[in-house]
Computed example of a mutant assay.
Amino acid sequence: MFEIRIICQPEDVEPIGSALAAAFATGPARQYPTRDGTRLRLYVTADHRDSDTTPNTESE
């Protein structure tokens, strides 16, 4: 298990969360404003997916 920290614009929170959830087994993102108040810091606890739950993206 590991933690991912991302600093992003507020409008990017949903796409980033979706992309991380597609790539890893994630928990809910914790959100905090940056010191300048214009961006957000996201903290996401993640783990590698089991090979049984990883979608096969290779074309045949």
Rank of each mutant, 00 (worst) to 15 (best):
R41H: 07
Q31N: 08
Q9D: 14
P33K: 10
E58Y: 06
E11K: 12
G27Y: 03
F24S: 10
R30T: 07
L42I: 05
P15M: 00
Q9L: 09
P15N: 08
T53E: 15
D47C: 02
D52Y: 05
E11S: 11
Y43K: 02
R5W: 05
R5Q: 15
T34I: 00
A29T: 04
M1Y: 10
T54S: 10
S18F: 10
A25E: 15
A46R: 02
A46N: 06
T53W: 06
S51G: 08
S18E: 12
D12I: 01
I6N: 00
V44C: 11
T53C: 03
H48V: 13
P28G: 06
D50G: 09
I7W: 06
V44E: 09
R41Y: 05
T45L: 13
L42W: 03
E14W: 05
R39M: 13
C8N: 05
P28W: 02
V13R: 12
A25R: 13
D12N: 14
I7S: 10
E60K: 13
T34E: 01
E60C: 09
A22H: 08
T57Y: 15
A21W: 05
T38F: 10
T34G: 03
R39T: 09
I4S: 06
D36P: 02
C8K: 06
V13P: 07
A19R: 00
L20I: 08
R35E: 13
G17V: 00
P15H: 09
V44G: 09
P10I: 01
L40I: 09
D50S: 15
D36V: 04
N56I: 14
A21F: 08
R5A: 12
S51C: 08
S51N: 13
G27E: 15
E58I: 06
M1R: 10
P15C: 01
Q31P: 00
P33F: 06
Y32K: 10
L20H: 05
I7A: 08
D12Y: 07
E60S: 12
P10A: 04
E3I: 11
Y32W: 04
R39Y: 03
I4N: 06
M1D: 10
Q31D: 02
Q31G: 02
N56F: 01
Y32S: 14
I4G: 07
T45Y: 09
C8R: 06
E58L: 14
R30G: 07
D50N: 11
D36F: 00
G17Q: 12
A29C: 03
P55N: 03
S59Q: 13
T34P: 01
D50L: 11
I6H: 00
A23P: 01
E3N: 15
A22L: 06
T38A: 13
A21E: 13
R49V: 00
D36C: 05
A21C: 06
I4H: 04
A21N: 14
E3L: 05
A23N: 07
V44M: 10
A19C: 04
Y43T: 07
A23W: 02
A21R: 15
F2N: 04
L20G: 05
E11L: 09
A23E: 13
R49D: 02
M1S: 10
I16H: 12
T38Q: 14
R41F: 09
P10M: 00
E60G: 11
L40C: 05
G27D: 15
T45C: 07
A21S: 15
I7M: 04
A29V: 06
T38H: 11
D36M: 07
P10Q: 05
P10T: 00
